[in-house]
Design a protein around this nucleic acid. Sequence first.
DNA 1: GAAGATTGAGAGTTCAATCTTC
DNA 2: GAAGATTGAACTCTCAATCTTC
Lengths: 169, 169
Amino acid sequence: MGSNEQLPFDPIAEARRQWVTHGWEASAAGMAAVTSVVRAHQLLVSRVDKVLAPYQLTFSRFEVLMLLSFTRRASMAMGRMSTRLQVAPGSVTNAVARLERQGLVTRTAHPTDGRATLAEITPEGRRLAFEAAAEVNAAVFSSLGLDGAELAELFRLLGKLRRQAGDIV
Amino acid sequence: MGSNEQLPFDPIAEARRQWVTHGWEASAAGMAAVTSVVRAHQLLVSRVDKVLAPYQLTFSRFEVLMLLSFTRRASMAMGRMSTRLQVAPGSVTNAVARLERQGLVTRTAHPTDGRATLAEITPEGRRLAFEAAAEVNAAVFSSLGLDGAELAELFRLLGKLRRQAGDIV
DNA sequence: GAAGATTGAGAGTTCAATCTTC
DNA sequence: GAAGATTGAACTCTCAATCTTC
């Protein structure tokens, strides 16, 4: 997760100062916000991955598994997973291929559309998914150090950001 | 940047609903916040990378270049860059190697410590850095769709998150 | 011709191992 | 022995190209 050394100051606050110094005060707050998102992402994914490592899972594959475990028929077309997880089709292919090798998912042909492939979670995959989810919930999601109001506000602000980027309708 | 299809609903809000349905309401808000950070990261990095593509730069290399352009002597030891940018030493080596091939940075031996390597920005690197920064500021940092108060709050919340994760003192 | 999925190329990341120098 | 840097292995991601099926 990057260098472990502890700096006596926040590198992002320092970068913002530099931005202002160079006459870019109009974008300094935006730069600091974006850089904070990048860094928070790095920290959070790292924490989740550490929790999932004993299960031989990564955040990406965990997301695939959870998505499948939530579907009524325990299966979903690859393309739909790509849309729902908002990642490139190749990423889903890769994740599902690995999960299949681990015996947590199987791939079957779509019953009516010969072009499509269905990914289906196995009983073992379902078992592992819920076990891992409980751990991730306890170790990360429910212990972020922000209270309910703060989490809601963070979700709202990032939602607005995503909306502005055309991500959500 | 992942699948381009527009869903009629927010996949993250949907995931949160599923979390609650499965009895995990205590971690639902945290899960939604973390997933939002992941998605926002993906969108923002993609936007910045698009702006930087004409300059043959990526966000990672851009950050290296900006850091060097801010230093008094226009140079910095590899290890220090790793700490400041908060990425693994190998990432810095990789980025600097590419920047060197592009003629934007040069590597020289540390004057007093034989183990260390100094990266120094070239005049061309400096020129490009500022030109690219102006574009990124205009196209991304100053047009995130959040007002000043919202950006400040986002920065504060992510700062608290980073602090809780032991990232900042 | 378009849609769904896969594959390969190119970038970036981290961690562990290695080499050199302190 | 520890610190600084590099290298290689293993992952993930995206995009473009390709193949099959609609």
